[in-house]
Design a binder for these strands. Sequence first.
DNA 1: CACTCATTTCACAAGTTTGTGAAAGTACGA
DNA 2: TCGTACTTTCACAAACTTGTGAAATGAGTG
Lengths: 167, 167
Amino acid sequence: MAYSPPQRDEQAMRSFVENMARLLADWGFPRMAGRVVFTLMAADEQALTAAELAERLGVSPAGISGAIRYLVHLNMVAREPVPGSRRDRYRMVDDSWYEVTVAKMSLLKTISDAADQGVAAAGGENTPAGAKLAGMRDFYAWVQDNMPALLAQWAAHKSRLHHPPPA
Amino acid sequence: MAYSPPQRDEQAMRSFVENMARLLADWGFPRMAGRVVFTLMAADEQALTAAELAERLGVSPAGISGAIRYLVHLNMVAREPVPGSRRDRYRMVDDSWYEVTVAKMSLLKTISDAADQGVAAAGGENTPAGAKLAGMRDFYAWVQDNMPALLAQWAAHKSRLHHPPPA
DNA sequence: CACTCATTTCACAAGTTTGTGAAAGTACGA
DNA sequence: TCGTACTTTCACAAACTTGTGAAATGAGTG
């Protein structure tokens, strides 16, 4: 049996990109933005031009343009002007997964705040409706408050992997 | 200045329900299901019939039916047959917010697994693309692994409020 | 100064989601 | 067994999303 080195499987990559785009769509991402993100993630190059993205995905440059605008706005993708060329190149922002996740978590705060307005509308926590809504509010407020500590642990965990403590 | 007791504000409640339904829609809930959930949460009664839901929301009974089916399937709402009547009543399942949030978090595992497939398609962690995808996979796997502990803390926190330890 | 080519903008077509009205289904009460 | 009242199912209409082609924009280059 011959040794077979790890090798890039373009076809698997295509369906991977498509799968991920669908998952991200559940998180509220526009479909095309998801595709662009994972084409960048899946590229061995560190940055790609809009034309390269369009070609690899087999979609029109128009779609890429809109997706890029969205992603740059979210600070997930950085635009890198190439000196001496009209092509810009685009690359994933470092730690953007971390950031996006944190941002998504902040939705919990929004929910908690909205629930609090419901408590007020219900006439306070002593009404049956108010009590139910207050329970919901407290849960999400608590999760939101404790999430930063969890993510800080991740940062610690990661740096421990890179800089193991002396035995 | 006269004392004014807390009082239910129906108009504020209506916009609260609509707001929340929109927020839940971002989490992938069908719009109508969100409305039903918050109409139940906002009710001083513990359970409502389909007809009551339709009337309070000013929507057709048909819409309620579909939403209820969805919510019962998700185990967020329980169907309570009323003896001696053909009306069923529907109530929120206790702790369903907690459960729904846990379920949503399991999406992180899905993402992590998908990322791992991307690593394979890229030809392993030693390729540039594979390394990027592996970083993403590890982050979501870690968050997923540590989430249960966080939510367990909530359970502890809540029971502490209800049964304060002796001084 | 005009030419070239990557990118962006715009209007539209195709596909999907969402809520309704009408009709069928179901179980109680007389 | 029939009538009544609630609920569910179904097919469709309206609204929204998404991606495309074609034209406009803008930055280098001869």
